[in-house]
Amino acid sequence: MTKTTMTVNGKSVSAATEGRTLLSAYLRDGLGLTGTHIGCDTSQCGACVVHVDGLAVKSCSVFAQDIEGADVKTIEGMANADGSLSVLQQAFQDHHGLQCGFCTPGMVMSSAALLAENPNPTEHQVRDYLEGNLCRCTGYHNIVKAVMAASDQAVPAE
């Protein structure tokens, strides 16, 4: 076991890890941050997306020790400082961009990365960017509407 230290949601944290400990397990089991969901463990579904040094990363495809010292942001770190929902999270709520909620943390984290990279994406760009995130419930339409609304653009018609 090795002590792995990084900054998660603005706080320096450490937990004991084995070399094979995935970042998703480090966050959930080592730190108790269960908002990062594990859907497939093969980086296919996108439920585990977090930001590592500002980039969207599927946390089930990265070993925790490999990002020693990195700055990680999880869904728990997306809220405003006062605890209220961020603009993007509020847009997901307002536009019904979730149903069962399992994919939602990954969708929000991927969408936030897209908006940081491209503050005014087209509907096509949103759909293309979210291609690596699977959702069984929504048909994606309301998720796209939420991202467009969060970017202060016209929301696609029903």
Rank of each mutant, 00 (worst) to 15 (best):
T36W: 00
L55F: 09
Q93N: 14
A16M: 12
A116S: 14
A157Y: 04
A70V: 12
D82I: 13
G139L: 01
A47H: 07
L85S: 08
C60Q: 10
R136W: 08
N133D: 05
I75D: 02
G77Y: 09
S14C: 03
N120P: 00
Q125M: 07
I67R: 04
C100W: 07
G83Q: 11
M6N: 01
V13F: 11
R20N: 05
A149N: 03
P105K: 06
G19L: 11
D41P: 08
C135H: 02
G106H: 09
E131F: 05
G97P: 06
L115P: 04
L23S: 08
S12A: 15
N9C: 05
Y140E: 05
T138V: 09
C45T: 10
L98N: 12
G32I: 02
H51D: 08
Y140K: 10
P121W: 01
F63V: 11
G101P: 02
K11E: 13
A116F: 03
A113W: 07
A157H: 12
A154D: 15
E68K: 14
R136C: 09
G46P: 04
Q93H: 15
M78Q: 14
L88I: 07
M1I: 12
I67Y: 02
D152S: 14
K11L: 07
V62K: 05
K11P: 00
F102G: 09
V108D: 05
D53V: 00
A16S: 12
A91I: 10
S86T: 06
A91S: 15
G46D: 02
H37F: 01
A56N: 06
Q93R: 15
G19P: 13
V52D: 09
R136H: 12
Q44V: 13
D41S: 13
Q90E: 11
